[in-house]
Design a protein around this nucleic acid. Sequence first.
RNA 1: GCGCCCGUAGCUCAGCAGGAUAGAGCAUCAGAUUCCUAAUCUGGGGGCCAUGGGUUCGAAUCCCGUCGGGCGCACCA
Length: 581
Amino acid sequence: MSQTQTLYAAFAGHLNAALDALEEAGTLPAGLNRAAVTVEPPRDASHGDLATNAAMVLAKPAGTNPRALAEALVAELTKLPQVTGAEVAGPGFINLRIADAVWLDELRALAELGANYGRSTMGGGSTVNIEYVSANPTGPMHMGHCRGAVVGDALASLLEFAGHKVIREYYVNDAGGQVDVLARSVHLRYREALGETIGEIPEGLYPGDYLVPVGQALVKEFGDSFAAAPESEWLPAFRTRAVAAMLVMIRADLALLGIRHDVFSSEAELQAARKPAEAEVWLRARDLVYDGELEAPKGKVLDDWEPVALPLFRSTKFGDDQDRSIKKSDGSWTYFGADLAYHFQKAQSADALVDIWGADHAGTVKRIKAAVSAMTGADGTPTPFEVKLVQMVQLLRNGEPVKMSKRSGNFVTLADVVSEVGKDVVRFTMLTRKPEAQMDFDFAKVVEASKDNPVFYVQYAHARIRSTLRKGAAEGLAPSAAHIDRLGKEELELIKFAAQFPRQVEAAAAAREPHRIAFFLGDLAAAFHAYWNVGNDRPEKRFILAQDAELSGARLFLGAQIGQLLQSGLALLGVEAVEEM
RNA sequence: GCGCCCGUAGCUCAGCAGGAUAGAGCAUCAGAUUCCUAAUCUGGGGGCCAUGGGUUCGAAUCCCGUCGGGCGCACCA
């Protein structure tokens, strides 16, 4: 079951009908472009329930003045039974007041749709592949990965809710040189497990303790047969074992945050299947790959730089600053060479691609977008492809920057932070700012201030509602829609706020900005808390009224729906809606 | 030098494809608890939306320049 039309969309329809009527009457020339006409709630609630800019937008092309047009439109809109008031304001806004019955209908719709209220058909069932996390399989997840993981996961849920099929994908970079480094680091741990004294981990290898059990497992599997063997004999086996072990760890870390991917794609398998080679052939046939030399990098001096002929992809043809090599001089694939084939492969099974990347990869966005355009656009329209850059999280400890590096073994793991402050705090914190803004995450501060975290504010609203429903039930009072027409002004304000959820979902999904849901929930919780507190001074405004079961039932009904909405919204963010606090 | 992102209250940040008097949390000041969960609520103070121009009925929002901060500029990943 899905919601087919929001209340706001319905009024956009009414407005269009009114404009049609004006056209027929000759007040308005036919065929004006109405694309810029909006129907939305005014910033200031005292202006009414809905506002439209139609008169201001259309006045000029219609050759009339905004206020005159607005008056005519008001006369038309007033005919609607749902409209109880319409007036012209300011430079030509039309403010509408909507009949209470319309809002009460919306409340009933919320109850009927339950967890599906706000679900949209906007996506039209098209498939979006969203790639996120994709951390290198060389160690546990650390806080630097966390933001992209949470944002990607929440976005995936949001797009699903907005009517897309979603594939959640993790690209495993298991083909590069860093995996050799990992394998060598593991070999050292393997020798250690055999009883050798390995001393300090040499510079350049991964020093983390998390490799100790991997070494032990390899002893169990291979005994001591590789202890003194040359690297070429053990490297391939150690690579695959080590990567597999790292992925087990990474999945466990992600699970702590409630994150699960549908697909793990391996770069090594991609190469073994010769996908990059196929891509090269295909691109060469279209003169999109040629042999050439790269310019020396600007802005820094490399002593060992010298021009070499390499197969280059013509990314400049698609807006990049430089053509990019797809192979190294030793004949192996560059990261880009494989990534290009990978994206082409993804495009086969999805209508649109979204990548969530850390901002440190910003420099490679143009080339991969160029590659996707080139490869998917050859016969028809290119597959829509967006890269969302998630800015770095600067990790602080008491205001001091913490340098993080897997090489040095000095990093704060995601698991540490989650066990310290909890999944919900981590997730909500990451979702209460837009991803492209830089962010400080002071470990000490977050731990210390976790009680003030906004996530609890939202959860508390939900817990309050659940508690009230339990208490009502204990007193024989159940939520009921039978008398919701007795709800008053304060209750209607709450309904009006809640009714914005569907359009918030669509706007957030269209913008690929899950953080908007977090802010909406904060505002909804605030509206609820404020309403609740009215009952402190005025006992007749409480939910539980032993002397008036009808009104009590109506208020509990409203409360139940607000609770449901909080739960739906939190579910999109992957945060628990708790029963009590 | 070039590319991308950011600059809004003391601090952390929203600002919904340009709308009406720029908002919230924290901090601060003044209040509310014999009462359904006070992890809450009510109110006050606090702003040259970095800056200069442009676009138009209208700009924090779009365009250009400048300044400041971050990230990147390999055949790394």
